[in-house]
Nucleic acid binder design. Structure first.
Lengths: 160, 160
DNA sequence: ATAATCCGGATAATTATTATCCGGTTTAAT
DNA sequence: ATTAAACCGGATAATAATTATCCGGATTAT
């Protein structure tokens, strides 16, 4: 049981897109190159972020990706759901129902309630943090000098 | 990202073992049969529970498994860790470190802190519930009549 | 027109999980 | 003692999930 690496990669991709000036886009291969992900697969991840309305894609030459929402409105949770999907961490297999020989009406799951709560608790933390708040951390004194390099890189590689 | 079904199966197995009178044991194939799991693989899961000191195995003919601890002292979390292992849901791949070209000293992970907190939050819920409290739920009025059947089944299939 | 990009479907490669098998050790019963 | 029935643990196979690739189509700046 491990979170897909795609979630982490996507978060960093969105952080990169957040450094773009208005109207500018970043080519998918440029992003995946910087992140060190497989270009073709990473494009699939970007598509999921597009479907989730977190980023926008512009087709054609000089095309690429950019944020669709303000960074304050993109929660880490949104990215998590976009990539991992809606399905919960725990899918009750109804073992106890069989064990107890329950009729359909009586079906319940002792673990279900607990697991649901655990998952909500996990998600709640992911809902708290946004791309804006993450970006703020990255901008902290400690890294500010590296970040300016990164922003330079973004400006050199962005389109339009 | 989905919890192993082995965790759920193990929880129910422990609930069954909890119905055993003192000194009695349950044969692994009897348990896996009731739960509907593959016998050989399920034995591996039982081994993990043994390694985690949650249950005891007695070898030889008339052997089997029984609880090692009181049900109050077995948390769902313990079973989760026994089966899934210690590794966290999120393993930082250090993408941002590369992106920011950080020196080894400076290495950190913006997501790491958040993910760690999320996971702790999830685990906290699993730590709350014990086998004893789960058993209590199962004993509730609603199911008590089925449970007596189940206990009868346990008595018929237990050894010594 | 052309080239560069996104798009989406099919498919393959890799990895994680689940499942099986087999030879070994322990123990109750004969 | 011998035997049969269980656990033990290592090797291995089958299955499922994740990651990665490929290709033909649609879109757009030049």
């Amino acid at each position: 049981m491990q979170m897909k690496t795609g979630v982490e990669q996507s978060v960093y991709a969105v952080l990169l897109l957040n450094m773009l000036p208005d109207k500018a886009v970043l080519h998918s291969e440029v992003i995946s190159g910087q992140i060190g992900a497989s270009p073709t697969y990473f494009q699939k991840l970007l598509r999921k972020l597009v479907s989730a309305d977190l980023i926008t894609s512009v087709p054609g030459v000089k095309g690429g990706f950019k944020l669709k929402k303000d960074p304050e409105d993109i929660r880490v949770y949104d990215i998590y759901v976009a990539i991992e999907g809606q399905q919960s961490l725990y899918s009750p297999s109804g073992i106890l129902n069989d064990v107890l020989e329950l009729e359909y009406d009586d079906r319940c799951c002792v673990l279900g309630g607990l697991m649901e709560e655990a998952e909500e608790s996990w998600k709640a933390v992911l809902k708290r943090e946004t791309i804006a708040s993450l970006a703020e951390q990255v901008e902290s004194d400690r890294f500010v000098h590296h970040v300016t390099d990164l922003k330079k890189w973004v400006e050199e590689n962005m389109v339009v």
